[in-house]
Design a protein around this nucleic acid. Structure first.
Lengths: 208, 208
DNA sequence: CATAGTGCCGGACACTGTGTCCGGAGCAAT
DNA sequence: ATTGCTCCGGACACAGTGTCCGGCACTATG
C-alpha cells in the first residue's frame, strides 16, 4: 500500500519497514519465552524501537499482529501432508512416518508462533476464526483422502471419515504442540512413529 | 443498571454460602455462552447478587474461582476410564466404546467449565499447572495400562508407552472438547466409536 | 532553494478492568 | 448493651487499550 518510497535513515536497522521490525520484535519476544497475552503493545513497540502510536498506524490491534505473524510462516504442515498419498504399496506407513518427522521439524521452527496462536484462539473470536479456517483445509483434505481410500477398498467402509479426520487433525495438533513444548528433540523419532502408526493402523488400515 | 432486583434478601437461597452463590452464578453465565476471560469480576458478583468487594473476600482472583469451579465436578473422565481394563477377551474393544460413550456424556455435562479451563490454561500459569497435574494422572494411568499389556504380550513391545499415552490423552481431550462444542449429539455414537477403535487398533492391538 | 507531503515521535486522553482498603450497616451470640 | 462477624458500597492506585494531535525530520517535487 503506502511508501514505495523507502526513506533513508541514519540507523541502518531503521531501513527495514516498520512492520517488519514489529513482526521480528514480536517473534523475538515470544522466542524469549514471553506469553503473547502478557506482551503489551508498549513492550512490543519498545522492542521494535518504535513509538507505541506508530504500532497502531500499522496494526489495528494485537490480534491482527498475530495473524500477520502467522501468515509469515512459509511452509505449513498442510503443505507437507498434502505430499503424502497412500498408494497401496507396503511403504505407505514408512512414508507417513517420514512426513511426520518433517511436520515435527516444522512445529519446532514455529513453536512460539503456534503457541501464541493457540493461546489467543482460546479467547479471541477473530483469531479463532482465522485459525480454524486454516485447520478446516486440513480436515477436508484428510477426510477426502480417507474417502478415496474407502472407495478403493483399502480402508474400512464403516469408518466415519469426517469424525476420524477430526481426531487425526485436532488430536495430532494438540499432541504436537505439547511435544515440541516439552521434549528436547530426543523424543522426536518416537513421536513421529506413534503418530504415523496410530493413524495408520487405527484408521487407514483398521482391521476388521 | 446493576441489580437492584437482586439485592440483599432474606431469600432462603441466600442462606447458602456466598461462595456457592458465586460458583453457581459463574456456571450460569458460562452456560449462557459467556467466555470466562470476558467475564469481569463485576459481572460475576452482580449475577451472584453480591458486592464486588465480597468476591475478593472469598476468592483471591478469577483463576482461583475457576479452579474451585473445576473441583466441583464430581465424576471425572479419569474415574470412568479407570474402570476399563483390557482382559484379553474379545469384548475389550466394545467395552472401550461403552466407556467413551460415558466420557462424552460427561464432557457434555461439564462443557462450559471444561471450555473455560482450557481457555484460561492457555495463558494463566497457575491454572495451567493445576490442570496439567490432573491430566498427568490420566497420562500415568494410560501408560501403566499399556505397559501391563506389553508385559502380557498383548500389545506390541516396540510401542513407546509414554508417547502413545500422550497422544491418546491429549489428542482425545482436544477432540472431545471440540466435539461437544460443535456437535448436537447426533455424532456422539460415531465419536465414541472412532475414539475407541482408533486407540484400540492403532495402539493396544497395533498389528505387526 | 523553497515548499508541500509523509511518516514517525511522544505525549495526552477517555475508558475498562483489577485488586486493595475502609467506614458503616445488619445480625447473632453473649 | 457489647462484641464480633460478614457483607455493602464506594474510593483508590495502577495497568493496559485504542484514539488523537502537534511537532519534527526527511524526501520528493516545483
Amino acid at each position: 500500500m503506502p511508501s514505495v518510497t523507502r526513506r533513508r535513515s541514519p540507523d541502518p536497522a531503521r531501513r527495514a519497514s516498520v512492520e517488519a521490525q514489529i513482526l521480528a520484535a514480536t517473534e523475538r519476544l515470544l522466542r524469549d519465552g514471553a506469553s503473547f497475552t502478557d506482551l503489551g503493545v508498549q513492550r512490543i513497540a519498545a522492542e521494535a524501537g518504535v513509538a507505541r502510536s506508530t504500532f497502531y498506524t500499522h496494526f489495528s490491534d494485537k490480534s491482527q499482529l498475530l495473524m500477520r505473524l502467522a501468515n509469515t510462516m512459509q511452509t505449513t504442515a498442510f503443505d507437507l501432508v498434502v505430499r503424502w498419498q497412500p498408494t497401496g504399496q507396503p511403504d505407505d506407513p514408512q512414508r507417513l512416518i517420514d512426513v511426520f518427522r518433517e511436520v515435527i521439524k516444522l512445529y519446532r521452527q514455529h513453536a512460539e508462533v503456534l503457541k501464541a496462536v493457540n493461546e489467543v484462539s482460546s479467547y479471541d473470536a477473530t483469531v479463532r476464526q482465522f485459525w480454524s479456517s486454516r485447520l478446516d483445509r486440513f480436515l477436508n483434505r484428510t477426510a477426502e483422502v480417507l474417502v478415496a481410500e474407502q472407495e478403493a477398498g483399502r480402508t474400512r467402509a464403516d469408518i466415519d471419515a469426517a469424525t476420524a479426520a477430526r481426531l487425526i487433525v485436532l488430536g495430532g495438533d494438540r499432541f504436537l504442540a505439547h511435544h515440541v513444548a516439552t521434549d528436547d528433540g530426543s523424543g522426536d523419532e518416537a513421536a513421529a512413529r506413534e503418530l504415523a502408526l496410530t493413524w495408520w493402523h487405527g484408521v487407514h488400515r483398521r482391521p476388521a
